[in-house]
């Protein structure tokens, strides 16, 4: 073992406190984001999710194209509907679990404390992790969508390029909102396993239980269209779905009386309303997560 050598450590006389620096808010966030992104890229979950999503997206596109070759065009509704279902199922799962693991995982490995002992605020750490994961998720989605778009292009796709691009954008925003929720779960959890469990439960709730519950409510209480609509768009997944359908069809009439009501009542502002709901789902859980992370101060 070599001896320690202190030649490099500065002399006491030029050691004045004004030499001590720290990064600005934004630079700290970007630094953490970069680290988080790099960690995500080399992690198994990112690889797994990217491969799974890409395979599924290509599979769905391929299936929706199958048999359409002889007439050279795809079922318009089928590709879109297939992708829509896939996104609603898989993207929340990806984003929720990715978010849930982040703080809880660091906590479990004991690395959180060490980061927090650095000149870094809790807000910066959390936001940095959020940004890093968000970029990783969006990259993962872009790869999946990009390759399936390649397939659609090759087989002369039925979904317009513009609509498809909007689908990617909406899916990314949905991922951001679910990531936000995942991070909120994470700051509350001591162990990554527990956080993942909770996020799976939340996923189940958002994807299935809330819709099934609302369906039951609609039947049992004979809810009026405006009530069904108001209750439905609380769920970011439904808001996402409606936004995609508006983008594809310019109206929500495929969604029956409730959709027609929404199209008539809100008209041009409907996409903004729905986007607003999802953006709120991005901001609120993240804000609450930051608040809890700062107040509770668990490591």
């Amino acid at each position: 073992m070599s001896t320690m050598n202190l030649n490099g450590v500065s002399r006491p006389e030029n050691q004045s406190k004004n030499r001590v620096t720290h990064l600005s808010f934004v630079r700290s966030i970007m630094l953490i984001a970069r680290r988080e992104f790099r960690d995500a890229l080399s992690s198994k979950w990112f690889l797994l999710y990217t491969i799974a999503f890409t395979t599924l997206a290509i599979g769905v596109s391929f299936l929706s194209l199958a048999g359409s070759g002889e007439h050279g065009f795809a079922g318009f509704g089928k590709t879109a509907a297939g992708l829509l279902n896939l996104i609603m199922l898989v993207v929340p799962l990806m984003a929720l679990t990715a978010g849930a693991g982040t703080i809880a995982g660091e906590r479990e490995r004991g690395t959180l404390l060490y980061l927090l002992a650095q000149p870094l605020s809790r807000t910066e750490l959390l936001l940095g992790k959020y940004v890093g994961l968000a970029i990783a998720l969006i990259c993962s989605l872009c790869i999946g969508f990009g390759l399936s778009a390649g397939l659609l292009a090759w087989r002369a796709g039925g979904v317009g390029a513009g609509s498809f691009l909007m689908l990617v954008v909406f899916a990314s925003v949905l991922a951001l909102s679910m990531l936000s929720l995942g991070v909120l779960i994470s700051v509350q959890s001591r162990r990554a396993g527990v956080a993942t469990g909770i996020s799976l439960f939340v996923w189940l709730g958002l994807v299935f239980l809330s819709d099934l519950g609302l369906m039951a409510g609609t039947v049992l209480f004979k809810l009026r269209v405006q009530e069904v609509f108001a209750l439905a768009i609380i769920n970011p997944l439904q808001a996402f779905k409606m936004n995609v359908i508006i983008n594809l069809n310019a109206s929500l009439d495929v969604l029956g009386p409730v959709g027609m009501y929404a199209s008539q009542e809100f008209g041009e502002s409907l996409p903004w309303l729905l986007t607003g709901v999802i953006v709120l789902w991005c901001l609120l859980p993240l804000a609450v997560a930051i608040m809890i992370f700062r107040k509770r101060g668990g490591i």
Binding site: Y114, Q118, P119
Partner: peptide, 21 residues
């Protein structure tokens, strides 16, 4: 002002816990 305060401090834990990879 935790961030500014911690900028003045170098911290050595009982056992370094940093990303193993």
């Amino acid at each position: 002002k935790g961030k500014q305060a911690r900028a003045q401090i170098g911290y050595v834990p009982q056992e370094l816990a940093f990303h193993d990879d």
